[in-house]
């Protein structure tokens, strides 16, 4: 179990309070083997938290405990904690002048793996991650997606029990991102004991694959739960009515007259200015009538499930990444 209690990190000079920046206090208990996504925009403090967890930064206050070890207690516990770690930072920790194999052999050596064990791990991981045929190529000749895979392999080489990933798909296109996340999931599942994985991301779809999502905003944890729990805080299902003109808005208001006002989401609670959202719950007696009148007016609408982006908006009042969330894009053709 990983336990963070009251972790804070203050930047800037104490005498210049206006310019100081703080993250935390953050307190979390993370179950062993779970996959936690730290979700938030740039500057929300998720990378700082990961740097603190990787011991690259010292917290201003608070404590980390990993299976009973406090890494800041003494040099021995510091090293014990580091031997449990596998870290992939935003910038891949690879030497571009070396070949893939040379990088991985080096990573094995500094992770204190025996040479034979390292050789076996490199062989099996490179096959599973799909770059066995590029082992003797220099890193500088690889594509961005492949570099990320090699870096994941480097981070997982010593079979870490705590895997920290800081925006591991940064700079990848959608296809490469998707492929990377699938590989990560497969690799976690195939490990002898699933590593506790903490991944910082601002991508909603990446966080959806986690067991637990910790939403961060301006250095603080604002929401925490499984993706489903967080989505359910917005609504189980929603009715979305597309609004293109002011007359659409009038028509929609007429059609939604039967809907209890508290179920219609305020504009500030949604990222879209071109849609009206209605929260749905079990046994909405008025739903059939509303749908039939919307159909009769010709307004575009759809039944949808809220996303983690909506949950983030509900928790913070600020949109995470509006353009990255397709549910917020106007696409009446796709609606029924």
């Amino acid at each position: 179990m990983l336990e963070l209690s009251g972790i804070t990190r203050v930047y800037g000079r104490a005498r210049d309070k206006a310019r100081t920046k703080q993250i935390g206090p953050v307190s979390l208990i993370i179950e062993r083997g779970s996959f936690v996504a730290l979700l938030g925009p740039n500057g929300s403090g998720k990378s700082t938290l990961l740097r603190i967890l990787s011991l690259s930064e010292t917290p201003s206050s608070g404590r980390i405990r990993w299976v009973g070890i406090d890494p800041h207690e003494c040099r021995a516990s510091h090293r014990t904690y580091r031997s449990a770690l596998g870290v992939a930072f935003q910038s891949p920790g690879l030497d571009r002048l070396l070949t893939v194999r040379e990088n991985l052999v080096l990573a094995g050596a500094i992770s204190e793996l025996k040479p034979e064990a390292a050789r076996d791990r490199i062989s099996s991981l490179s096959t599973r991650l799909g770059f066995a045929d590029r082992l003797d190529d220099r890193v500088s000749t690889l594509s961005g997606g492949l570099i990320r895979r090699v870096d994941l392999c480097r981070a997982m080489l010593a079979s870490p029990s705590l895997l920290l990933l800081d925006e591991p798909t940064a700079g990848l296109d959608l296809l490469a991102r998707d492929e990377f996340m699938k590989l990560l999931s497969r690799e976690r599942d195939s490990a002898d004991s699933r590593p506790t994985t903490i991944m910082a991301t601002h991508m909603i779809d990446e966080a959806e694959g986690a067991d637990r999502v910790v939403m961060m905003h301006r250095g603080k944890v604002v929401a925490d739960g499984s993706p489903e729990e967080l989505r359910d805080r917005v609504a189980k299902r929603r009715l979305r009515v597309w609004i293109r003109t002011e007359s659409d808005r009038t028509l929609a208001a007429r059609c939604l007259a039967a809907v209890p006002q508290q179920l219609i989401q305020k504009e500030a609670e949604t990222t879209a200015t071109n849609a009206i959202y209605v929260r749905l719950h079990e046994g909405c007696a008025w739903l059939a009538g509303v749908i039939s009148s919307l159909s009769a007016t010709g307004l575009s609408f759809e039944l949808s499930t809220p996303t983690l982006g909506d949950a983030y908006l509900l928790a913070t009042g600020e949109s995470l990444v509006p353009t990255a969330d397709p549910s917020h894009e106007f696409s009446p053709e796709a609606s029924s």
């Binding site: 580091r82 920790g93 690879l94």
Partner: peptide
Amino acid sequence: RQSGFLQAALVSPAR
């Protein structure tokens, strides 16, 4: 440090 190699090395168990 800029390439990320040093950060990765510093979090490894190597002294």
